[in-house]
Design a protein around this nucleic acid. Structure first.
Lengths: 236, 236
DNA sequence: TACAAGAGTGAACAGTGTTCACTTTCTGAA
DNA sequence: TTCAGAAAGTGAACACTGTTCACTCTTGTA
């Protein structure tokens, strides 16, 4: 299992790694600019001065290559969220920053983010059609980012800011969904944040913060103080 | 402009329309089951007993055909949301139902919904890189569904339930993003609603309602009654 | 130096969307 | 009823795609 022990790293190994890196970085360059559809094996081969079939000596398939790009992106995303959640600021600011950072990072690399959620069905490893293994999920950077959200919810509850009756996991998922939704809409509709021209011009950043604010507000202790998670209800 | 005046509809027109419909319905059948990747022109041609090139006499391109499927889906979606928003129920129930209906309808036809938001950039018609024309946007079913959300927010404000300081358009967009996010995650991660096995089993429907609840809660008048849209802030 | 493992290649396969010259069918007017 | 012209439908081809495979060439080791 000691795959990267320097004592066993031969020149051939380093050469191979360098070629592999050149493929990845060319792929990253093309992918960031034009996305999955602009990235063809033949084009990639052209860019790195190899034949198309050579690439298959390094990656089993195009999908496998792209998976690597996605995973690297998610690691960046995780690092950023982690930074936001552990910054030295008041809790609610940190909570909002988590959501805003998530959306912002996604929008910065739209193709990466979109691709990560593009394949229906096997987006996460399944085990026999049943619920996913939490262990397995937590080991991916996607899962770890989600873990940060869960901790944030529980922290908010301990601080008596968030509704204590909320299930932290469910609340975190809800927060994730809210963040994901804005990220996707901003990516797929470039002018989403200023859809209505009558409205005064607004930067995407401002709308992201507005949205983060609303998402976090949904978790606050309800106005009536009952804390049972149900809405006031029967009005109107 | 009287394109469908019966008096001018010849047998040839009806025949043409029938073939066109057969293409669409075959496409719908395949697409609903296998999505965009399973839908090839040659396969479609096989299913309706025509040659592949014949299809190009009815549709300019594969994308054009798929656009028609998407538009039909969005009309269904709009109708359902409209129904939820105008049902004879207390306001907050209607508000939550709008979100839940949106997500539920999307999840029912995952490929349609996913496809509608799959293409980066030109998801909505642009005019010269500037903000979108609101007029143009409102004529699409996607835009109309959004209009329903805006009305709902303003109604909530008039009823003194929602925070009056919120911009209704922005709040509606936020609500849209929240709904969209859950829809996408449920579609792309089939077990999203029960990611954590330790958690007691939960139907997707229940999680949708939980999420709808949180989304709507975010719009309520803040606990402190200040109504200026800012969060309590400096705690922790 | 010989040999085996690995790196790299070009041609081919089975797909894809799309086009175009071509034939067949149909329709409306002389 | 005939006949020109339009429309409907076709098959072959083009330019792509991801992927495979037999093959050569290079490299490291015994």
């Amino acid at each position: 299992m000691q795959t990267d022990s320097p004592s066993e790293e031969t020149p051939a190994d380093r050469r191979r790694l360098r070629v592999r890196e050149s493929i990845i970085s060319a792929a990253e360059r093309v992918f960031a600019k034009e996305g999955e559809s602009g990235l063809s094996i033949r084009r990639l081969a052209d860019e790195i001065d190899y034949s198309p079939s050579a690439i298959y000596k390094y990656f089993g398939s195009k999908d496998e290559l792209i998976d690597e790009l996605k995973e690297a992106f998610f690691e960046r995303l995780l690092a950023k969220i982690d930074g936001s959640s552990s910054a030295d600021r008041p809790f609610l600011q940190r909570a909002k920053a988590c959501v805003a950072t998530y959306v912002d990072t996604a929008v910065t690399r739209p193709f990466h983010y979109a691709a990560a959620f593009s394949s229906i069905k096997h987006a996460l490893p399944e085990n026999g059609g049943g619920p996913l293994s939490w262990d397995g999920f937590v080991t991916t950077s996607k899962g770890q980012a989600f873990g940060v959200l869960i901790s944030m919810v529980t922290e908010g509850q301990e601080l008596d800011i968030f509704d204590p009756s909320l299930d932290p996991v469910m609340a975190a998922k809800s927060l994730w969904a809210g963040s994901h939704g804005l990220a996707q809409l901003l990516i797929h509709m470039p002018h989403f944040h200023q859809l209505v021209p009558e409205q005064q011009p607004m930067a995407a950043k401002d709308f992201i913060e507005f949205h983060a604010d609303l998402q976090v507000r949904g978790l606050l202790k309800p106005a009536d103080g009952s804390g049972n998670g149900s809405l006031p209800g029967q009005n109107s």
